[in-house]
Computed example of a mutant assay.
Amino acid sequence: MTDQPRSDDIVEQKAAHQEQASPEVQSGPPPTTTVERQGPPATDPGGQAAPQLAPAGMSKSDEKTWGVVMHLGSLILGIFPILSFIVPLIVWLINKDRSRMLNDHGRSALNWSITYIIMMTVFGALTAVYIGALLLPLGFLAHVILCIIAAVKAGQRRKFKHPMTIPFLRVG
């Protein structure tokens, strides 16, 4: 036999040499990648946009409940206009970061409550010339109607912006 190495031995030697020369890439599990969904929001079979899910920590039923409480609290305390903003303010401050719907409804309810306070103060001052005696009940009636409509919309998780309201807080 000859002293020359066989071709199989040469291939094995080259492979062993390459393994020693290349550094180890990583030890442990392979890196993971995150795939983000792109494109338009999901739609239902009717072509309507799918409803948004409530943020973590706030269920849809809780959103409905707090939205209705916010508006009905304003309605009940609206007998004394200066108190009409207390319930919407408390509910909004507690839930504004937990739910976009409650943030929007809270801002709208606060805008209306402050407008209502100003309106009833002006109407009260106008009682000196008797026109206020007609306007005060109309202002209260507007408050009752708008609070009921807003509570129904909140119960349906739909947006509602009170009409004829001074925008102290921007509603999204």
Rank of each mutant, 00 (worst) to 15 (best):
P23V: 08
I90L: 13
L93K: 06
A42D: 11
S59E: 14
A54I: 00
G78R: 01
I86N: 07
V68P: 12
N95H: 15
S59W: 13
Y116N: 08
R98E: 06
N111G: 08
V25H: 06
V69Q: 14
L83F: 14
Q20D: 03
P23M: 07
A49N: 13
W112N: 04
Q52M: 10
E24V: 05
R100A: 07
A109M: 04
S27Q: 10
S113A: 14
N103P: 01
H17N: 01
L110G: 10
H71E: 03
A42S: 09
P31T: 06
T43G: 05
I114E: 15
L102Q: 03
M119W: 13
R107S: 01
Q26C: 07
I117P: 03
W92E: 12
P41Y: 08
M119C: 10
P55I: 01
S27V: 14
L77S: 15
E63M: 04
R107F: 00
V91P: 05
T34E: 15
T32I: 08
L83S: 09
A56W: 06
A21V: 08
N95F: 10
S22A: 00
E19Q: 00
S108F: 05
H17P: 00
K60N: 02
N95R: 13
Q20C: 02
R37H: 11
L77T: 13
D104E: 03
I118A: 14
G28I: 11
L89A: 12
D62N: 08
L72T: 11
V25M: 05
I114K: 15
W92I: 14
G47R: 04
D104G: 01
M58K: 13
V91G: 04
S99A: 05
F80I: 15
S99W: 02
Y116G: 05
H71Y: 05
P55D: 01
T34Y: 12
L110S: 15
A42F: 05
E63Q: 06
G73P: 15
G28Y: 04
T115C: 09
W92K: 14
T34H: 10
